[in-house]
Nucleic acid binder design. Structure first.
Length: 172
DNA sequence: AGTGCGATTGACT
DNA sequence: GTCAATCGCACTA
């Protein structure tokens, strides 16, 4: 859920990637730095960083304080505030509004100012419960990384058209 | 102080 | 399918 001056935006998370303890692909792997310190907060805090100088990535810290791990939120099925998301993204097609981590952040106007925010409390950005536990969840290798590339730590809703990535990865 | 490089995207052949 | 854009930051010296 995202609370903006223009209104409330929300969506269903349909795709994530885990960056676990001791994971060479994770930003926390080489210890705490000014950029990644939010990964070391109590689980449920936002870690936002800029990738390729172009796109912001939203992560949720996933361990107890001082450990350093998180989950990248890769795609959303837009639910509320779709007209505002279209303005934020400059595209009309609902499927393209938040399909991919950079697009998701753009649709929700997420940037480094939200870094470190507690996502378990209602605020400018927070997490709710909307999922249907009976929907089938697939897993695959993670997208766009080089180290620890073989681990099956990407998760997505099999039947959702709002999932990113090559179709060959979305069949399991 | 200088350098190299992405947890991507959008435009183009 | 290929490829450039773009910049904060981690690393080296």
């Amino acid at each position: 859920m995202r609370d903006l001056p223009h209104g409330i935006l929300s969506g269903l998370i349909v795709e994530t990637e885990a960056y676990v303890i001791g994971d060479a692909a994770g930003h926390a792997y080489r210890g705490m730095t000014p950029r990644n310190r939010s990964l070391f907060l109590e689980r449920g805090h936002a870690y936002v960083y800029l990738a390729y100088g172009i796109s912001y990535m939203l992560n949720v810290s996933s361990e107890t304080p001082g450990i350093g791990a998180g989950v990248l939120i890769r795609a959303l099925e837009p639910l509320e505030g779709i007209p505002i998301m279209k303005l934020n993204r400059g595209v009309e097609r609902v499927r393209d509004l938040a399909r991919g981590p950079g697009r998701l952040a753009a649709a929700l106007r997420i940037d480094r100012r939200l870094d470190g925010l507690d996502l378990c409390r209602k605020g400018p950005l927070w997490l709710g419960r909307r999922g249907d536990p009976s929907r089938k969840i697939g897993r695959s290798i993670r997208i766009g990384i080089t180290r620890d590339a073989d681990r099956l730590l990407r998760f997505y809703l099999c039947d959702s058209p709002f999932v990113s990535g090559p179709r060959s990865l979305n069949m399991r």
